[in-house]
């Protein structure tokens, strides 16, 4: 029913600070890379239009500040997301370990319907660097364990694989959108009036 209307997908990028979230977004949207070492304030978003099969999709990509973890700031931004991109730095074991808590935190704060099947995508960034610490196999295994999350290895600096990763993001989000659309807005019927009858009867009989 909703397949022809314009689709807006909200995508959240999460991960430890310094893993390259802003760089990934800039590479994807503007095809630019800057070597600056610059922290992000709060959160910001960019939009990009994308053609997925025969549909025109607008992706609204939210870039968040990595060190703001567990701050109430998240709630406002996470709500209503269609897909969540978890980013780690393949040269930093800590960032890999944090993925789990980022994922959990997102699910709690965003409170999506059907959290079990919420689409995540994991990106291992900075594969252009020499001192790699997390092997693809290890990351892949983790993703498989977590309900088969798609895993991509990218380099925001050289623009490797970025496009492909975000396309998957859009596809997965779109797939979920369809599922959700099929459900009614209020799946549970209102049952209060029924309940209201019973006490009345009981009251009378007493």
């Amino acid at each position: 029913m909703a397949s022809r209307k314009k689709v807006l997908l909200k995508v959240i990028i999460l991960g430890d600070s310094g893993v390259g979230k802003t760089s990934l977004m800039n590479q994807f949207v503007n095809r630019k890379f800057s070597n600056q070492y610059k922290a992000t304030i709060g959160a910001d978003f960019l939009t990009k239009e994308l053609q997925i099969d025969d549909r025109l999709v607008t992706m609204q990509i939210w870039d968040t500040a990595g060190q703001e973890r567990f701050q109430s700031l998240g709630v406002a931004f996470y709500r209503g997301a269609d897909c969540c991109v978890l980013v780690m730095d393949v040269t930093s074991p800590t960032s890999f370990k944090s993925l789990e808590s980022w994922k959990d935190e997102f699910l709690i704060q965003a409170g999506p319907r059907d959290p079990e099947n919420f689409p995540f995508v994991v990106i291992g960034n900075k594969i252009d660097l020499e001192n790699r610490m997390i092997q693809a196999r290890k990351a892949q295994a983790w993703c498989q364990e977590k309900n088969n999350i798609p895993y991509f290895e990218t380099s925001a600096k050289e623009g490797v694989n970025v496009e492909k990763a975000f396309e998957t993001v859009a596809r997965n989000a779109l797939a979920r959108e369809k599922e959700i659309d099929q459900q009614a807005d209020f799946p549970m019927p209102i049952r209060i009036p029924q309940q209201e009858e019973q006490p009345k009867k009981d009251g009378c009989s007493c």
Binding site: L8, R79, G80, A110, R113, R191, Q195, P199
Partner: peptide
Amino acid sequence: RDILRDSAMSDSETTTDLSDKNCTGE
């Protein structure tokens, strides 16, 4: 208690509905 439980159930239903939509949620 039964009554309260029921009303609570439908309450929670509304909140989850809302939270899933595309919105920033302020």
